[in-house]
Computed example of a mutant assay.
Amino acid sequence: MLNLEDVLANGLQHPEAGWNMGSFGAIAEFHHVGDEVPPQHSEPLTQVTARGGVRIERLEGVRPVAYETLSPRAHRWSQAVSLCLPEGDAMMHRRDVLTELGPDDEALRDDDRGAILFDMGLAQPQVDFCIRTNDKDLLAILRENAGRSLMEHGNPAMPAILKAHPHRVALTKIGRLEVFQMIGGPDTGGVSPEGPHTHVLPKLLRAGRTHSANTPIPEGWVPCAGFHPENPVFDRMGQDKDFNRKAFDAFQTLLQAWGPDDYLAAKANCWAALEKGQEPDGVAEPASRTGRAGLRNGLRQWRRLHADSALLDRWSVAFDASTMPDEAEDENPGH
């Protein structure tokens, strides 16, 4: 039986693993970059670099949900483990205005514990999305506009935040993730910096959802953090790489233990049919979104495991020729 703490501890030491905390519209992401010192053992379930850090503070009551999602690119798939809590236990403060919280005494680094934490007031269910600063000019503007929505037309606080690049801190019931790098925008050439970064997307925030519809979170549960083990077909910069069978097998172990039954069944049925040489004619497509993803990813993975074949091509034409836009997942999401 898998031990969740051991899995996460090993993941925190893996240079190709990634982490996130947030919601559908506001997310903070952490991963290592190539020029950094490899991950070092530190405090339990904690990893900090010069660019950001993550700490898992609670596992009691946490349900891991492992899953693979469809990529818009037909030769790929994404994978993750969501760390979930029951809905009532996962909820944070849902403040809807800029709010000063005081010194961040729980900051990952000692030097940051005197800086002032502000909830941005994004009103997200499972995360208090915050900024942290000791910049006097920024503090003055934030305090002048506390109690107002950052999305309010003409509020000077948001432009000041984008200019000053304060730390971003995502707080959940199971831990925190901090980003020390600049905010992606005009000062970074319009792209997020390599490594830890954040996304705040107002259009998605308005949906008021806790997660993407393509993430198979069980009813009544809410994802509070995401763990992304090494992907076997593309690297942390999103570039294709040679198939890594070791990384693939490692995630399949997690998937078998913590994955959705309908996904696992659809993929197993697909592989069994291909093993027997069965034609796709007359095979029914799974009824559920999760099952359809299992079938399609099963075809993509069979190709990596067993190479091309005319039979596999016929299955792909039948079931994976065109992925519906709402059933594929952005590989570099801001959700």
Results as ranks from 00 to 15, higher is better:
Lys276His: 10
Lys276Met: 11
Gly277Asp: 06
Gly277Cys: 10
Gly277Ser: 07
Gln278Ala: 14
Gln278Asp: 14
Glu279Thr: 12
Glu279Asp: 07
Glu279Ala: 12
Pro280Gln: 07
Pro280Phe: 09
Asp281Gly: 12
Asp281Met: 05
Asp281Arg: 15
Asp281Trp: 04
Asp281Val: 03
Gly282His: 13
Gly282Pro: 14
Gly282Gln: 13
Val283Lys: 07
Val283His: 07
Val283Pro: 00
Val283Ala: 13
Ala284Met: 12
Glu285Gly: 08
Glu285Tyr: 01
Glu285Trp: 00
Glu285Ile: 09
Glu285Thr: 12
Pro286Phe: 02
Pro286Lys: 05
Ala287Leu: 14
Ala287Asn: 12
Ala287Thr: 14
Ser288Gly: 09
Ser288Phe: 10
Ser288Arg: 07
Ser288Met: 10
Arg289Asn: 05
Arg289Glu: 06
Thr290Arg: 07
Thr290His: 05
Thr290Lys: 06
Thr290Glu: 05
Gly291Ile: 00
Gly291Tyr: 06
Gly291Thr: 00
Gly291Gln: 04
Gly291Pro: 15
Arg292Cys: 08
Arg292Trp: 03
Arg292Glu: 07
Ala293Pro: 01
Gly294Cys: 08
Gly294Ala: 12
Leu295Gln: 09
Leu295Ala: 04
Leu295Trp: 09
Arg296Met: 11
Arg296Trp: 00
Asn297Phe: 04
Asn297Arg: 07
Gly298Arg: 03
Leu299Gln: 05
Leu299Asp: 01
Leu299Trp: 08
Arg300Asn: 11
Arg300Pro: 11
Gln301Gly: 00
Trp302Ala: 04
Trp302Tyr: 14
Trp302Phe: 12
Arg303Cys: 08
Arg303Glu: 12
Arg304His: 11
Arg304Asp: 06
Leu305Gln: 10
Leu305Asp: 06
His306Leu: 01
His306Tyr: 10
His306Ala: 03
His306Met: 10
Ala307Ile: 00
Ala307His: 11
Ala307Gln: 10
Ala307Val: 02
Asp308Leu: 01
Asp308Phe: 03
Asp308Glu: 14
Asp308Asn: 13
Asp308Thr: 04
Asp308Ala: 13
Ser309His: 03
Ser309Lys: 06
Ala310Phe: 00
Ala310Arg: 07
Leu311Gly: 00
Leu311Ile: 05
Leu311His: 01
Leu311Asn: 02
Leu312Met: 09
Asp313Phe: 04
Arg314Ile: 02
Arg314Trp: 11
Arg314Lys: 15
Arg314Tyr: 09
Arg314Phe: 09
Trp315Thr: 01
Trp315Met: 08
Trp315Val: 02
Trp315Cys: 05
Trp315Leu: 07
Trp315Lys: 07
Ser316Ile: 06
Ser316Glu: 14
Val317Thr: 15
Val317Arg: 15
Val317Glu: 15
Val317Gln: 15
Ala318Thr: 14
Ala318Val: 12
Ala318Met: 15
